[in-house]
Design a protein around this nucleic acid. Sequence first.
DNA 1: TAGATTGTTAATCGATTAACAATC
DNA 2: TAGATTGTTAATCGATTAACAATC
Lengths: 217, 217
Amino acid sequence: MTIKHNVSDSVIRRLPRYYRFLGELLDSGVERISSKELSLRMGLTASQIRQDLNCFGGFGQQGYGYNIAELHSEIEGILGINNKINVVLIGAGNLGLAIASYMNFKQRGFKLVGIFEKDPQKVGKKIRDVQIYDICDLEKICDKLSPTAAVLCVPKDVAKSVVSDLIPLGIKGFLNFSHYDISLEHSDVYVENVHISDSFMTLGFKLRQPDNHKEDL
Amino acid sequence: MTIKHNVSDSVIRRLPRYYRFLGELLDSGVERISSKELSLRMGLTASQIRQDLNCFGGFGQQGYGYNIAELHSEIEGILGINNKINVVLIGAGNLGLAIASYMNFKQRGFKLVGIFEKDPQKVGKKIRDVQIYDICDLEKICDKLSPTAAVLCVPKDVAKSVVSDLIPLGIKGFLNFSHYDISLEHSDVYVENVHISDSFMTLGFKLRQPDNHKEDL
DNA sequence: TAGATTGTTAATCGATTAACAATC
DNA sequence: TAGATTGTTAATCGATTAACAATC
């Protein structure tokens, strides 16, 4: 599997969706699919699908299309699902608990190795076999667990300070639910922001506009 | 406040972030700011900021820059924060509870008017003064509350069926946390997707790549 | 072989950046 | 007035779409 040097962000962000659709097709027993057929199911153009896939290699066959099992497994490889990344979760409030309880980390290529929380009521408990540690022991425990990614489910100010603590401990990537803008101060780590309140406002804008802002994918 | 006819999605998605940064500047007592200074703080170009703002009107003044209080309030108006949208939340699992408990709906231009859940243990309770109703009473209660937006915190299959129920009840917009692809079947509603597991996979890809996929905002 | 569909190049479209005259 | 900075037009860059020769 050869990956073209600089694959654009737009393409990368579509990969999980391809993976999802192909997984469903696989489960429903379909064997092959053409870019045209897939484009109809996903609401994309066939051109875009072929362009996207060809960033990573020629997985199709002229006159036939794509073998679903093979393409699914190729994208799994591209996303690196099999090579698990150790991740810690910071903050066991409602959102942190939701993610710790429901997220299928394994299926997304991660292994949740620890949860950190300051509330002594919660410290010491377990969520699905994952220990909740005292945030004060962050350094000690991280040295042991050696995570390389962190999920931030804490308020902005806590996020800011915990990021400064985590980077020296070897954290290279953040899934950031806070409003702290990590990349502005730390340019050497990977950040995925999930700003739920921004999504609310964007939806609100669209709802109030008479115009056509349907769709988004 | 005149809004240019078709403002692009990219611009709209940046509005909440402008609003956030301006709110912070306002709180810290700064009075005016130039596009250049704001661009440095936000990690954008000054050009982009001026282009974005000018989709909605000329809020600045040559030689001076932008008055922060005024610009903040203009964007508030553009986002329609003051004109609250009634929203219902579907699913009182961990994620639904997290949103019901922590989201500042008012500040984002929404009013949470009801929560729907099938678990009889939860039905009848309240979260921050918002009633949890039985999902079976969806139609009856929605007729009374007249929501125009819904937040989906339920699994894919439940999402699919509940969307079909909600659209005839007048729901025009969805904040969708499920993997159900609303827009594919319903082209007449506004959808904002928040796919947390996709964000995990995107982060995973970046972490495993040797290349430069820093940043994202 | 004939038909289908890919991989890939070229054309188009849109978004970002640069430049600068207008003007506070 | 002179300096600063906008609003806006033009240039650039990148992403999407279209077209088509290659080929299964």
